[in-house]
Simulated scan of single mutants.
Amino acid sequence: MTESSTSLASLCALLAEQASVLAGSMGAPLTPPAYLDLVRRSQDIAGKGEQVLKLCVQQARDAGHTWQEIGDLLGVTRQAAFQRFGKPIDPRTGEPMDKTVHMADAAERAVAIVTAVLEGRMDEARRSFNTEVLAAFTDEVRGNGLATVTGLVGAFEGFAEGEPFVRRIGDHTVVDIPLRYEAGDMKARVAFDTDEKVAGLFILAPDTP
């Protein structure tokens, strides 16, 4: 048995044990359970389940299955599957790339920046731009971009349901924010560089990888 298989077997056993304990914590019909404790235990189980899923994906890749097959099974694109589970090697160093999100407030900052851009408060938004974006993101570029989106899906109505999706891609922290328009949904994408400045800001179709 490989080290990966051993780890997977151990995790599955622990997951089964935690699930059994959670089921036993539900309490009798006349004795309400400690609900916050159930939330804590469920969170622990979800974390273990994510580890199991990652190991299963790793074993599927080791067995020769493609990211397309894995993405199809999970209902996402092959790129999304790779971004979630892949282990890219940095061509500059030959070392595994760091996928840890270090910006604790990335989602909140991205929402504030997108809101400022959509509402025309560009002086406020530009304080977060890096040098390249500051030079390129003129009022004309903003106006043309918003006009193009309006031509596709109508007027902006607000943020759509769903939390911002934050991940690390290469040297950038990337945040996708669901947006709601009168004739369809879109998403804003904000990319922060290593200095935590905006290195890119786009409005995209919701299924854009």
Score class of each variant (00 low, 15 high):
121 R>P: 00
84 R>C: 08
82 F>H: 10
206 P>E: 14
184 G>Q: 08
206 P>V: 12
96 P>G: 06
150 T>E: 14
104 A>K: 15
208 T>M: 12
69 E>I: 00
135 A>W: 02
205 A>K: 10
81 A>K: 02
153 V>P: 02
49 G>F: 01
60 A>F: 05
41 R>H: 12
162 G>Q: 08
132 E>Y: 08
177 I>F: 04
161 E>R: 05
26 M>G: 09
85 F>Y: 14
189 R>D: 09
108 E>N: 08
73 L>M: 10
161 E>N: 09
52 V>Y: 09
33 P>Q: 03
193 D>S: 02
15 L>Q: 15
197 K>R: 15
126 R>P: 04
6 T>Y: 11
11 L>W: 11
125 A>V: 00
12 C>S: 13
4 S>M: 08
94 G>L: 05
11 L>M: 12
15 L>D: 12
106 A>S: 09
177 I>D: 03
79 Q>V: 13
78 R>T: 13
65 H>W: 14
81 A>N: 02
13 A>V: 10
206 P>S: 09
114 V>W: 04
125 A>S: 03
130 N>P: 00
187 K>G: 04
111 V>L: 11
84 R>S: 10
76 V>S: 04
166 V>D: 08
31 T>H: 10
171 D>A: 14
113 I>R: 00
185 D>C: 07
138 T>S: 12
51 Q>W: 06
24 G>S: 09
162 G>C: 02
146 L>M: 08
60 A>I: 01
107 A>S: 15
142 R>H: 11
53 L>V: 10
93 T>P: 00
35 Y>L: 10
176 D>N: 06
113 I>F: 06
37 D>T: 11
109 R>V: 10
103 M>D: 14
141 V>N: 09
180 R>P: 01
21 V>Y: 09
134 L>M: 08
147 A>V: 02
61 R>E: 08
73 L>R: 13
139 D>Y: 04
3 E>C: 00
125 A>M: 00
60 A>K: 06
31 T>E: 10
28 A>T: 08
134 L>R: 06
160 A>D: 14
3 E>W: 11
6 T>D: 15
109 R>Q: 15
83 Q>C: 05
86 G>A: 02
46 A>P: 07
37 D>Y: 09
204 L>S: 00
97 M>K: 07
172 H>I: 05
52 V>G: 06
180 R>I: 04
82 F>Y: 15
184 G>A: 07
135 A>V: 05
5 S>G: 07
99 K>Q: 14
57 V>D: 06
43 Q>E: 13
22 L>N: 10
197 K>E: 14
136 A>F: 10
175 V>F: 03
149 V>K: 04
161 E>H: 07
89 I>H: 02
43 Q>I: 12
92 R>F: 07
118 L>N: 05
150 T>C: 09
84 R>D: 09
41 R>N: 12
183 A>R: 15
90 D>G: 00
125 A>D: 06
182 E>K: 04
84 R>M: 11
117 V>T: 01
56 C>P: 00
10 S>Q: 14
3 E>N: 10
14 L>Q: 14
94 G>W: 06
56 C>H: 08
93 T>D: 07
